[in-house]
Every structure is written in structure tokens, then in C-alpha cells.
Amino acid sequence: MDLKKLNIDELVPPLTELRSEAEIIYTWQGDIIKPTVSILCATFNHVNYIKYAIHSFLMQETSFPFEIIINDDASTDGTTEVVEQYASLYPNIIKPILHKTNQYSRGVRPISILYPLAKGNYIAVCEGDDLWTSKDKIAQQYAAMEANKRASVCFHSALEFDELLKRSELICNYSDITKVIPPETIITNRGGSIPTAALFYRNQNIKEMLQSHSNAPIGDFFIQSYLALSGEAIFLPEPMCVYRRNAKGSWTSNQQDKTKQSLYYEKMIKAIDNFYGNVQSFEHSHNLTIPLVFYLKAYLFQYKKPTSLLRAYYEQVSILENFKKYEVTQLLVKELQSILLKKTKYILSKRRDQHEI
């Protein structure tokens, strides 16, 4: 596959080539009203993308029943009508939740609506602007999880497609073979370790997982960290999904706004502290100090004046309730010293080059 010339239309079959509902169900073993896997999809104003996501769900070839639950958060661009169209064609598989009023603006996360409705033993996640690329994606992940009862999550590499630059690259590729990824690797990458559309995990302890980060501005990092802390994380080397970057209305596009970015850093500092308080009984939870310090650095570097920076530092560290402040400070100072050293070496090298010229 040529990543530079990735054609999304070639990755999933068109509607005319999709199997009918009867053909999909025919291959299933077991009761269709007791799905093995629940596919959860949150969408809002994804009219240009949602059909690709739905097609990628429907092309899954499995011997077990699955359900597709789509939460449309009062879209205004025609997304709702697209979801309704497919729900009418696949009424026993697709279960739409269509809101008249946007719930996210009221502080209600889509995932908190979707989780209670999931009947499957396993959960697979894909947002409305992403898609899957392999017909046996969830079948592979199901087999991997069934073979390892210690595993809490299974994921794979992905293709990241930049909607602005119209180019792709392979991301989250840890190995050429199936292997267990240590929790510290997932935690320290701050949510960039596992593409959301690659997540596949057991439908267990969901309430506790949601409560562990109820005040967080995003859920990906905390869900990934919780799953990594509570069991083994199995990695499959095949890229089986596309993550759209800078899609219209997406999180990555919103982060271009500096004011929103600053507020996001501040909220993440508080959320990681609260999350640590809820999961510090897990063996590897101490690794959460690293992403905490990352967001502290990002927040502090907004301030150019030393006095303003110091004031902001004391304000942020003083609100920490669960981390040991002196450990956070030590790590932060070490990180800042490293950055200053690199900058100093760079400046000296530039001056030396100019002198030689």
C-alpha cells in the first residue's frame, strides 16, 4: 500500500457491494440478540465521513454476532439522515441513538451514553470520522483476547490520514510481531499509544473506568491508561484502521486554537492528578508522573516572563492532591534543565558556525 497515495474510497466496499443483513447474520453462530462484540461509534457532524465508518463495520466477517451502536449527537449537517438510512437497511445490527439536543454541550460524553447499551462481552470503538480497513479486524482481536485471559485490551497499528495535507503515515507500530506492550509505554505516550479506532477490550469494570476520569477534557488517554494498568495490552502488527487528523470539527483541528490549547493543558493537569488518586493501587501507576510533567511544561512555556512562569508553576503544583509535590518538582526541574541545556548547545553551535563564516 502506497501511504502517500492513500485512497479512502478503496479501503471499504461501496454500498452496492456490502452484504445484506441476512448474509451477515447467516455466518454467525449463537443468538443474535446476545452479541459477542459491541461496536460503539460516536458521531457529530461527520456527514463526509460517517458512511465510510459504517461500511467498515458492516464488512466485518465473523462467526460470532456483533452489534453496531451509533450515537449521533444532534448533528446538523445530514449525518443523522445517513445513520437513519443504514439503520433501516440493517435494523437487527445497527442501533442508532439520535439526539434532538446536543448532549456534549451539556457535559454528557457520548461514551457514557454508549457503554450502558453495550450487550457484548467485548467492546470495539471507532469514531464517526475514522474507519476500519480489514474485514477480519475484530475477529483477529477477539481471537487474541480469548487466547490470553490476562489481557485487558488488544490494539494494532494504524494509518493516520491528514485531511489538510492529504497524506498518510503509519503510526503506533511497535513491532513486526504480536507482542505484549508494557503499561509504561502506553501511559507515557499520553494517548498517542493506541488509536481509538484500534481499541478492543473486555466489557468489564466500565463504570469504574469512567469514574476514574470523570473530570477529564478527553477520554482516550485515561481509557488507554486504565486498560494498560489493569491487565496486559496485546499489540497486533497489521494496520487495520484509519485515523483522520485535522478532520473538520475533530479534536486535532480544535487544538489549533491557542486559547483552547491552554485551557486543555490546565484541565489535563487536574484530571491526571484525580485519575492517579483513583488508580494508584495499580502496580505501574507511578508512570503517570511523566504525562503530568509533560502538561505542566506545556502550560508553563506559555509564559515568557520568569515571574509569570514561577507564579503559574506554584498555582498548578499547589492544586495537586494525589501526587507527591516534591517528586513532581524534581522531575519537572530535570526536564527543564535538559531543555535549557539543549537550547544553550544549539545557540553556541550557531554562534560558532557564524564565527567560522
Rank of each mutant, 00 (worst) to 15 (best):
D9I: 07
V12W: 01
P13Y: 06
L15C: 07
E21Q: 10
A22K: 13
G30R: 06
I33C: 12
T36V: 15
S38T: 10
S38K: 09
A42W: 11
A42S: 15
Y52F: 12
A53L: 14
H55N: 10
S56C: 00
L58Q: 04
F64E: 08
I70N: 01
D72I: 01
A74K: 05
T80Y: 04
E81Y: 00
P91A: 06
P91Y: 08
I94S: 01
L98R: 07
T101D: 12
N102S: 14
V108I: 15
P110R: 06
S112T: 15
I113N: 03
P116C: 08
L117R: 10
Y122F: 15
C126I: 11
S134A: 12
D136M: 10
K137M: 14
M145W: 09
E146S: 12
A158Y: 05
F161V: 08
E169S: 13
L170P: 05
C172G: 03
C172E: 11
Y174F: 11
D176R: 08
I177G: 12
I181Y: 02
I181K: 04
E184C: 08
T188A: 03
I194A: 00
P195V: 12
T196Q: 13
A197R: 07
N203W: 07
N205D: 14
I206Q: 05
Q211R: 08
S212W: 02
A216H: 02
D220S: 07
F221K: 07
F221H: 09
I223N: 06
L227Y: 00
L227R: 04
G231K: 05
A233D: 02
I234T: 04
F235R: 00
M240P: 01
V242H: 07
G249M: 05
S253E: 13
Q255E: 10
Q255N: 10
K258T: 13
E266I: 10
M268E: 11
N274R: 11
H286L: 06
L292W: 01
Y295M: 05
Y295P: 05
L296S: 04
K297T: 10
A298H: 07
L300F: 00
K304C: 09
S308D: 15
S308P: 02
L310N: 15
L310A: 13
Y313F: 14
S318R: 06
S318W: 02
S318M: 03
L320Y: 04
E321T: 11
N322S: 05
Y326S: 15
V328C: 05
L336K: 08
Q337C: 11
S338R: 13
L340Y: 12
L340N: 13
K342S: 08
K343A: 14
L348W: 13
Q354I: 11
